[in-house]
Design a protein around this nucleic acid. Sequence first.
DNA 1: GAGGTACGACCGAACGTTCGGTAGGAGCCG
DNA 2: CGGCTCCTACCGAACGTTCGGTCGTACCTC
Lengths: 230, 230
Amino acid sequence: MDLKDRDADASRRIRTAAVLLFARRGYAATSVRDLAREVGMTNAGVYHHVASKEALLADLMRGAQQGLIDATERMLRGVHAPADRLALLISSLTATHALSPMTTRVMDGELRSLTPGSPARDEIIGLRDAYEDHWRRAIADGVAGGAFRIADQRLTRLALMSMCTGTSEWYRPDGDSTLEQVCAEFVAIGLAAVRASVRAAAAPDLTLLPEFPWEPPHVRNDPPPAEAGR
Amino acid sequence: MDLKDRDADASRRIRTAAVLLFARRGYAATSVRDLAREVGMTNAGVYHHVASKEALLADLMRGAQQGLIDATERMLRGVHAPADRLALLISSLTATHALSPMTTRVMDGELRSLTPGSPARDEIIGLRDAYEDHWRRAIADGVAGGAFRIADQRLTRLALMSMCTGTSEWYRPDGDSTLEQVCAEFVAIGLAAVRASVRAAAAPDLTLLPEFPWEPPHVRNDPPPAEAGR
DNA sequence: GAGGTACGACCGAACGTTCGGTAGGAGCCG
DNA sequence: CGGCTCCTACCGAACGTTCGGTCGTACCTC
């Protein structure tokens, strides 16, 4: 195999193993040696591809957050009605968490593992705020235009975002509901929450969703937690 | 101060510090020395009150889960209509996460830190399943009786529970919405999700909620994550 | 004085990270 | 195309630090 390809492949395999272990056990509970064993290297070998354990985490989180932003802006292009924009925000966030559960779990839950005040952490917080601004604007526009009736915009936004991000904890591709059904159901709940008339929203174009080259394939009984043994 | 009281006080302060640090940094990223410094002891002193770090975590999680179950069964007593039972499940879970954010964050997120196969872990999983059964039964009864119309009961349950548990990440007692408003809003969303007619649900009796003696007081800018610097 | 609380010192293990060295493909030269 | 050199990917071993946990003892309270 070509050396350049070899290097790229090793980097990708390290990232795949990292996102899997970070999502399962958490960043702090995962050692570089665990990572190395998973990709068939020694811990020293890993450091040829990665500046530090924290830089690896920051890379994954930055890539995840940026991918989500890019996909969201692609999907929102040309959509102007607040209800339609909110529906797209709900279905794209839900679908991303369903299809990339490991990456999104790390993205959502490991911010605390980045050194406070570090440039990487500040950058990722900036990206997250930029993403959330799409939600803030969609809801604020809907309220300003009279399409939505809401008591507290922040409350509504956080409730709906929690519902969407929770998907990464329980969604299984071989479950009872298809991804399209989940998205449609969540859009219906979301539009009901803002008291908007629920018209038939166009199904989102799933090919516009972010793809993370390091996301490991969905496996059965993937995480120990949510519904184990039931 | 009496010796017995002194001991009990030290135990409580250790648990308060533990739930705070476990919620903020995560269990794996918190050392026994961090814990000891927080309560003004050495690490050896902590071990006078605690069998092991993992046993301390298990104690907190068992107490949290059991407290939630007890409170839920207190509130459900005498309530029979599925819609009313679901409304109570939503508002009690939301209020518990709002009022005890540190304890509930540990309860919801640190199951993976307990040794797989250990009796403590199995016991806590059993408690969690027992709690979730209240949700399963309420939803199944509503569907069986024709009060609810749902595509996938598991999907609906997990979506609503995610919404409720997410509250611990963002609720602030000095925010724009009161706890009663949050609960009322979430109940409305939940009943809309099961297509039940939204009648005016009686406000839940907050004095029946679980109380955790180790839960630290709510402080401003409590956690670093969710809405820092905005 | 008896008993329990907490300390100081310490254990073996594991942590993230570094460093010198090596095997083998890549690139150049003839 | 053979041979020489360079470079890259990785290893083995070790660094200093910190981890969870233990032990003997001093202090304080009753």
